[in-house]
Write a protein that binds this DNA or RNA. Structure first.
Length: 268
DNA sequence: TCTTTATGGCGAT
DNA sequence: TCGCCCTAAAGAT
Protein backbone atom coordinates (compact mmCIF):
# COMPACT_ATOMS: atom_id res chain seq x y z
CA UNK A 1 0.00 0.00 0.00
CA UNK A 2 2.49 2.59 1.06
CA UNK A 3 4.02 5.38 -0.99
CA UNK A 4 4.47 8.84 0.47
CA UNK A 5 0.86 9.92 -0.01
CA UNK A 6 -0.30 7.11 2.32
CA UNK A 7 2.10 8.17 5.06
CA UNK A 8 1.03 11.81 4.92
CA UNK A 9 -2.54 10.62 5.13
CA UNK A 10 -1.66 8.52 8.16
CA UNK A 11 -0.05 11.53 9.84
CA UNK A 12 -3.26 13.45 9.32
CA UNK A 13 -5.46 10.60 10.55
CA UNK A 14 -3.34 10.10 13.66
CA UNK A 15 -3.50 13.79 14.40
CA UNK A 16 -7.27 13.93 13.93
CA UNK A 17 -8.02 10.89 16.02
CA UNK A 18 -5.39 11.02 18.75
CA UNK A 19 -3.98 14.56 18.67
CA UNK A 20 -3.67 16.42 21.96
CA UNK A 21 -5.08 13.79 24.28
CA UNK A 22 -3.76 10.75 26.10
CA UNK A 23 -3.50 7.56 24.09
CA UNK A 24 -3.44 3.96 25.19
CA UNK A 25 -0.51 2.32 23.43
CA UNK A 26 0.05 -1.42 23.37
CA UNK A 27 1.58 -4.20 21.34
CA UNK A 28 -0.90 -7.09 21.15
CA UNK A 29 1.67 -9.15 19.28
CA UNK A 30 4.28 -8.36 21.93
CA UNK A 31 7.17 -7.41 19.70
CA UNK A 32 6.91 -3.73 20.61
CA UNK A 33 5.78 -4.26 24.19
CA UNK A 34 8.72 -2.43 25.82
CA UNK A 35 8.42 0.63 23.60
CA UNK A 36 4.66 0.77 23.92
CA UNK A 37 4.91 0.76 27.72
CA UNK A 38 7.16 3.83 27.62
CA UNK A 39 4.57 6.02 25.88
CA UNK A 40 1.34 4.39 27.06
CA UNK A 41 -1.01 7.02 28.48
CA UNK A 42 0.97 10.00 27.15
CA UNK A 43 -0.53 12.66 24.90
CA UNK A 44 0.17 12.72 21.19
CA UNK A 45 1.60 16.17 20.51
CA UNK A 46 2.52 15.95 16.84
CA UNK A 47 2.17 13.74 13.80
CA UNK A 48 4.52 14.28 10.91
CA UNK A 49 5.52 12.55 7.68
CA UNK A 50 8.70 12.78 5.66
CA UNK A 51 8.62 10.58 2.59
CA UNK A 52 7.61 7.11 3.70
CA UNK A 53 8.53 7.76 7.34
CA UNK A 54 5.89 8.56 9.95
CA UNK A 55 6.79 10.30 13.22
CA UNK A 56 4.43 10.51 16.17
CA UNK A 57 5.58 12.80 18.96
CA UNK A 58 4.93 11.95 22.60
CA UNK A 59 6.87 14.56 24.54
CA UNK A 60 10.56 13.89 23.99
CA UNK A 61 9.81 10.46 22.57
CA UNK A 62 9.26 10.04 18.84
CA UNK A 63 7.52 6.95 17.62
CA UNK A 64 9.05 6.22 14.23
CA UNK A 65 7.08 4.02 11.86
CA UNK A 66 7.97 2.75 8.41
CA UNK A 67 5.54 0.42 6.68
CA UNK A 68 8.06 -1.14 4.34
CA UNK A 69 6.74 -3.17 1.45
CA UNK A 70 3.68 -4.68 3.08
CA UNK A 71 3.05 -2.98 6.37
CA UNK A 72 -0.59 -2.04 7.03
CA UNK A 73 -2.24 0.60 9.16
CA UNK A 74 -5.95 0.21 9.89
CA UNK A 75 -8.16 2.75 11.67
CA UNK A 76 -11.48 2.10 13.31
CA UNK A 77 -13.99 3.96 15.45
CA UNK A 78 -15.19 3.12 18.93
CA UNK A 79 -13.60 0.59 21.24
CA UNK A 80 -10.95 -1.63 19.67
CA UNK A 81 -12.00 -5.24 19.01
CA UNK A 82 -9.91 -8.31 19.85
CA UNK A 83 -6.75 -8.02 17.78
CA UNK A 84 -6.68 -10.13 14.62
CA UNK A 85 -3.35 -11.42 13.32
CA UNK A 86 0.01 -9.89 14.12
CA UNK A 87 -0.76 -6.44 15.51
CA UNK A 88 2.60 -4.86 16.36
CA UNK A 89 1.17 -1.59 17.61
CA UNK A 90 -2.24 -0.56 18.76
CA UNK A 91 -3.21 2.97 19.72
CA UNK A 92 -6.64 3.69 21.18
CA UNK A 93 -8.44 6.46 23.03
CA UNK A 94 -12.03 5.32 23.37
CA UNK A 95 -13.35 7.16 20.33
CA UNK A 96 -11.17 5.18 17.93
CA UNK A 97 -8.18 2.94 17.44
CA UNK A 98 -5.38 2.22 15.00
CA UNK A 99 -3.66 -1.13 14.34
CA UNK A 100 -0.24 -1.48 12.75
CA UNK A 101 0.88 -4.78 11.21
CA UNK A 102 4.07 -5.87 9.49
CA UNK A 103 6.05 -2.62 9.62
CA UNK A 104 9.71 -2.45 8.71
CA UNK A 105 10.21 -0.01 11.58
CA UNK A 106 8.27 0.63 14.76
CA UNK A 107 10.62 2.13 17.30
CA UNK A 108 11.15 5.02 19.70
CA UNK A 109 13.67 7.69 18.72
CA UNK A 110 15.22 10.63 20.52
CA UNK A 111 14.93 14.04 18.85
CA UNK A 112 18.54 13.66 17.68
CA UNK A 113 17.85 10.27 16.16
CA UNK A 114 14.79 11.65 14.42
CA UNK A 115 16.87 14.49 13.00
CA UNK A 116 19.30 11.93 11.62
CA UNK A 117 16.50 10.21 9.72
CA UNK A 118 15.45 13.53 8.17
CA UNK A 119 19.04 14.25 7.19
CA UNK A 120 19.39 11.14 5.11
CA UNK A 121 16.15 11.77 3.19
CA UNK A 122 15.80 13.90 0.09
CA UNK A 123 13.09 16.52 -0.46
CA UNK A 124 9.51 15.30 -0.20
CA UNK A 125 7.06 16.69 -2.78
CA UNK A 126 4.36 16.60 -0.09
CA UNK A 127 6.13 18.67 2.55
CA UNK A 128 4.91 22.25 2.49
CA UNK A 129 7.42 24.70 1.11
CA UNK A 130 9.84 21.96 0.12
CA UNK A 131 12.22 22.81 -2.73
CA UNK A 132 13.14 20.14 -5.25
CA UNK A 133 16.53 21.63 -6.00
CA UNK A 134 18.65 19.33 -3.79
CA UNK A 135 17.23 16.41 -5.76
CA UNK A 136 18.15 18.05 -9.05
CA UNK A 137 21.71 18.59 -7.80
CA UNK A 138 22.11 14.84 -7.34
CA UNK A 139 20.20 13.74 -10.41
CA UNK A 140 21.95 16.06 -12.82
CA UNK A 141 25.33 14.67 -11.72
CA UNK A 142 24.44 11.01 -11.71
CA UNK A 143 25.06 8.31 -14.26
CA UNK A 144 22.31 6.15 -12.73
CA UNK A 145 19.03 5.77 -14.55
CA UNK A 146 16.19 8.17 -13.86
CA UNK A 147 14.15 5.15 -12.81
CA UNK A 148 16.62 4.28 -10.05
CA UNK A 149 17.12 7.88 -8.95
CA UNK A 150 13.43 8.61 -8.48
CA UNK A 151 13.14 5.62 -6.13
CA UNK A 152 16.23 6.56 -4.13
CA UNK A 153 14.96 8.10 -0.92
CA UNK A 154 18.21 9.99 -0.38
CA UNK A 155 17.47 11.79 -3.64
CA UNK A 156 13.71 12.18 -3.37
CA UNK A 157 11.55 11.11 -0.42
CA UNK A 158 8.14 9.52 -0.82
CA UNK A 159 8.16 8.36 -4.42
CA UNK A 160 7.68 4.61 -4.85
CA UNK A 161 7.25 2.21 -7.70
CA UNK A 162 3.84 3.48 -8.80
CA UNK A 163 4.57 7.22 -8.84
CA UNK A 164 7.93 6.54 -10.46
CA UNK A 165 6.41 4.62 -13.36
CA UNK A 166 3.49 6.99 -13.79
CA UNK A 167 5.30 10.32 -13.68
CA UNK A 168 7.81 9.13 -16.26
CA UNK A 169 5.00 7.98 -18.50
CA UNK A 170 3.08 11.24 -18.16
CA UNK A 171 6.16 13.20 -19.22
CA UNK A 172 7.17 10.78 -21.99
CA UNK A 173 10.57 10.07 -20.45
CA UNK A 174 12.38 6.79 -21.03
CA UNK A 175 13.13 5.37 -17.56
CA UNK A 176 16.52 4.10 -18.74
CA UNK A 177 17.99 7.54 -19.38
CA UNK A 178 20.82 8.65 -17.16
CA UNK A 179 20.00 11.35 -14.62
CA UNK A 180 22.71 13.58 -16.02
CA UNK A 181 21.03 13.51 -19.41
CA UNK A 182 17.82 15.04 -18.09
CA UNK A 183 17.25 18.70 -18.85
CA UNK A 184 16.43 21.18 -16.14
CA UNK A 185 13.04 21.70 -17.77
CA UNK A 186 12.32 17.98 -17.65
CA UNK A 187 13.24 17.83 -13.98
CA UNK A 188 11.08 20.86 -13.16
CA UNK A 189 8.18 19.14 -14.90
CA UNK A 190 8.78 15.90 -12.96
CA UNK A 191 8.84 17.73 -9.63
CA UNK A 192 5.74 19.78 -10.43
CA UNK A 193 3.84 16.71 -11.58
CA UNK A 194 4.82 14.76 -8.47
CA UNK A 195 3.64 17.59 -6.24
CA UNK A 196 0.27 17.66 -8.00
CA UNK A 197 -0.20 13.88 -8.28
CA UNK A 198 0.83 13.13 -4.73
CA UNK A 199 -1.35 15.86 -3.26
CA UNK A 200 -4.30 14.33 -5.07
CA UNK A 201 -3.19 10.94 -3.75
CA UNK A 202 -3.31 12.18 -0.15
CA UNK A 203 -6.86 13.42 -0.60
CA UNK A 204 -8.12 10.40 -2.52
CA UNK A 205 -6.21 7.75 -0.57
CA UNK A 206 -5.20 6.11 -3.85
CA UNK A 207 -3.02 6.76 -6.85
CA UNK A 208 -4.79 8.07 -9.93
CA UNK A 209 -2.67 9.33 -12.78
CA UNK A 210 -4.75 8.95 -15.94
CA UNK A 211 -5.75 12.25 -17.53
CA UNK A 212 -9.47 12.64 -18.27
CA UNK A 213 -8.89 12.45 -22.02
CA UNK A 214 -7.21 9.06 -21.67
CA UNK A 215 -9.68 7.22 -19.51
CA UNK A 216 -11.02 4.07 -21.16
CA UNK A 217 -14.41 5.77 -21.43
CA UNK A 218 -12.96 8.79 -23.27
CA UNK A 219 -10.95 6.48 -25.54
CA UNK A 220 -13.97 4.34 -26.38
CA UNK A 221 -12.54 1.26 -24.66
CA UNK A 222 -14.22 -0.98 -22.11
CA UNK A 223 -13.85 0.24 -18.52
CA UNK A 224 -11.35 -1.53 -16.31
CA UNK A 225 -10.37 -1.71 -12.68
CA UNK A 226 -6.83 -1.85 -11.38
CA UNK A 227 -6.47 -4.22 -8.46
CA UNK A 228 -4.45 -1.67 -6.49
CA UNK A 229 -7.34 0.77 -6.42
CA UNK A 230 -6.23 3.60 -8.68
CA UNK A 231 -6.41 4.37 -12.37
CA UNK A 232 -2.91 4.27 -13.89
CA UNK A 233 -1.17 4.22 -17.28
CA UNK A 234 1.56 1.60 -16.96
CA UNK A 235 2.03 0.32 -13.41
CA UNK A 236 1.43 -3.44 -13.46
CA UNK A 237 -0.18 -3.18 -16.87
CA UNK A 238 2.54 -5.18 -18.66
CA UNK A 239 1.46 -6.74 -21.97
CA UNK A 240 -1.74 -4.72 -21.97
CA UNK A 241 -2.17 -2.04 -24.64
CA UNK A 242 -0.94 1.43 -23.70
CA UNK A 243 -3.94 3.65 -22.95
CA UNK A 244 -2.57 6.30 -25.31
CA UNK A 245 -0.97 4.49 -28.26
CA UNK A 246 -2.02 0.84 -27.93
CA UNK A 247 1.54 -0.53 -27.85
CA UNK A 248 1.94 -3.32 -25.27
CA UNK A 249 3.27 -1.98 -21.98
CA UNK A 250 6.66 -3.44 -21.11
CA UNK A 251 8.17 -4.55 -17.82
CA UNK A 252 11.62 -5.51 -16.61
CA UNK A 253 13.39 -5.98 -13.32
CA UNK A 254 15.54 -3.07 -12.25
CA UNK A 255 17.35 -3.08 -8.92
CA UNK A 256 15.11 -5.89 -7.64
CA UNK A 257 11.91 -3.95 -8.44
CA UNK A 258 9.56 -4.17 -11.38
CA UNK A 259 9.73 -1.31 -13.83
CA UNK A 260 6.88 -0.56 -16.24
CA UNK A 261 6.88 1.71 -19.27
CA UNK A 262 5.50 2.22 -22.76
CA UNK A 263 8.28 1.79 -25.32
CA UNK A 264 6.51 4.05 -27.79
CA UNK A 265 5.28 6.92 -25.62
CA UNK A 266 8.53 7.04 -23.62
CA UNK A 267 11.25 7.29 -26.22
CA UNK A 268 12.92 10.54 -25.31
C1' DT B 1 -2.30 -26.59 1.37
C1' DC B 2 1.26 -25.11 -0.55
C1' DT B 3 3.90 -21.05 -3.19
C1' DT B 4 4.20 -16.48 -4.82
C1' DT B 5 3.83 -11.70 -4.62
C1' DA B 6 3.68 -6.81 -2.94
C1' DT B 7 3.26 0.60 -3.71
C1' DG B 8 10.76 -0.96 0.95
C1' DG B 9 15.01 -0.77 2.76
C1' DC B 10 18.95 -2.59 5.23
C1' DG B 11 23.52 -4.78 5.78
C1' DA B 12 26.85 -8.08 4.09
C1' DT B 13 29.58 -9.49 0.19
C1' DT C 1 23.99 -7.70 -6.31
C1' DC C 2 22.20 -10.77 -2.81
C1' DG C 3 19.80 -12.33 1.17
C1' DC C 4 16.96 -11.01 4.60
C1' DC C 5 13.28 -8.83 7.53
C1' DC C 6 8.20 -8.15 8.42
C1' DT C 7 2.63 -10.01 7.04
C1' DA C 8 -1.50 -11.07 4.44
C1' DA C 9 -3.79 -12.12 0.37
C1' DA C 10 -3.90 -14.01 -4.13
C1' DG C 11 -2.72 -17.68 -7.08
C1' DA C 12 -1.33 -22.34 -8.06
C1' DT C 13 -1.82 -27.28 -7.04
Amino acid sequence: MPEGHVIHRLARLNHELFGGGPVRVSSPQGRFADGAALIDGKALDEAEAHGKHLFLGFGEQWLHIHLGLYGRYDFGTGEAPEPVGQVRLRMANGSGYADLRGPTACELLTPAEKAAVHRRLGPDPLRPGEAGDPAWQRISRSGSTVAALLMDQKVLAGVGNVYRAEVLFRLGIDPHRAGRDLTRAEWDAIWADLVALMREGVEAGRIDTVRPEHTPEAMGRPPRVDDHGGEVYVYRRQDQPCLVCGTPVRTEELAARNLFWCPRCQRT
